[in-house]
């Protein structure tokens, strides 16, 4: 895959992960490609990842942000486990964002648990790219 415009210096690293048993990966893959085309180093885990596997991947890959895609409705059980796992492994500073089928009434609970951004259906890729630039401090990178 060609990186279209690399940010100045080392590109920020983003993990895109699919927690739980959900196989819907269209959104995760499209976001992964958009972030890569915007100059990020993107690591995609594939589907059916447990919270532990995702935390381990974040540690190993030394990422700056973690994007979680979930459409199965298990977000209130799985996302907090990932956030706390990251904290326990010294990655409390890593920005975690989420997308998929997440009802609006769950946004507050997830935000309080430490999810920095939630992107529902209809979100533009630009919004996610801009958000990721902001939370990883890669604002200087231009598309």
């Amino acid at each position: 895959m060609v990186t279209e415009s690399a940010p100045v210096g080392t590109p920020a690293r983003v993990l895109i992960a699919k927690p739980g048993l959900d196989g819907h990966d269209r959104g995760a893959k499209v976001v992964a490609r958009a972030l890569r085309d915007a100059g990020f180093e993107v690591i995609y885990t594939g589907i059916r990842q447990t919270p532990e596997m995702i935390v381990q991947a974040a540690v190993q890959e030394d990422v700056d942000a973690v994007g979680l895609s979930i459409l199965s409705g298990a977000h209130l059980d799985l996302l907090p486990a990932i956030v706390s796992g990251l904290r326990e492994n010294g990655l409390g500073e890593v920005a975690v964002f989420a997308g998929g089928i997440i009802p609006r009434e769950d946004y507050d609970a997830l935000t309080q648990m430490g999810i920095a951004g939630i992107f529902g259906p209809g979100t533009s890729l630009k919004e996610i790219v801009d958000f990721t630039r902001q939370v990883t401090g890669a604002e200087s990178a231009t598309a």
Binding site: L21, D22, S72, G73
Partner: peptide
């Protein structure tokens, strides 16, 4: 639900949060 589709019982660790959801 996804545990049934992927071969896990409702009380399996991997079924956490997924039972009866989809």
């Amino acid at each position: 639900d996804l545990p049934t589709q992927t071969g896990y019982d409702s009380d399996a660790p991997l079924a956490l949060g997924e039972v009866g959801k989809v």
